[in-house]
Amino acid sequence: MQANMKPFEWMVKPTPQKEWIERRGILLWLAFFFIELGAGAFFVGTIFKSIEAMLVGWLVCGVIGGGIHILYLGHPFRFWRMVSRPGSSWISRGLIFVSLFLIFGLIQMIMVQAGGASPVVMVLADLFAFLTIVYGGFAMNFVNGIALWNTALLPIIYGVSGIWGGAGLALGIALASGEVSTLGPSLEEWIRLLLVAYAFLLAVYLVSVRYTNPTGRLSVQSIIFGRFKALMWLVVVLLGLALPMTIVVISFNTGIENMPAGALYLSIFCELLGDLTLRYLILKGGLYSPLIPSSAYSPSSAF
């Protein structure tokens, strides 16, 4: 729909958000994903006492996610300035959350390794891990010019998806490190619940945005029926939701330890791929409302 938007249609018709998804904006999409995924894995790791999940989560968040985020900046060496406005800016808050999470997370991991875990540090690390998971959602929710983003459901979805993804990642690590029998069943419980919650929230989210305003409606339409429908139905729904759901149902009957590892890996991969794709669609589907009325004959335009 907006793919070939002519310059004269810019802000005359609902206009796509580009800065955070196109060209170098791709980096920001990946950064948010890895930061939240990593924090989610760490968070799950602390709960399931998996030092491997914590470590991988910490690295994915801090090194991959944080690194990509800094690469995205126009002036990476000025990144320290970004903590200046926690009073109003979610990016400032986010950087503070991520930094504190990384600090407390590191301390926590060192303490766990040293055998002297402190509940206070763990609570702090998990708190900031959780805030790290959700701040991206809040940052987007704050943008009231984009109806698709401007909903309180977004941080919740991002929170759920972060933990869900993290749980998936943790399960994968457990599989790889052969701890699936000890961690598997309870992680599986989590994933089951989160998956259902995630699917439910996603449906509520899309339906509610559809009724916000015409631009929100157009965004949702583009995702469900429009130019993004293939990604939405094939990747997000089929691979990201239906396939893991099927595997969950099977494993619910057979027990996770009896599942072939390949099926579980596939499920985790699809789950993460679905989540990443949904994030892409939310960034890509974000539209600004026109500044100028244009009712005449819009239906058949190339738009």
């Binding site: 070939n4 002519k6 005449a296 004959y297 058949s300 335009s301 190339a302 738009f303």
Partner: peptide
């Protein structure tokens, strides 16, 4: 004209 164009099977672009 939009209507004329539509009748001729044309669309923008």
């Amino acid at each position: 004209n939009a209507e004329t164009g539509r009748k001729k099977g044309l669309k923008d672009g």
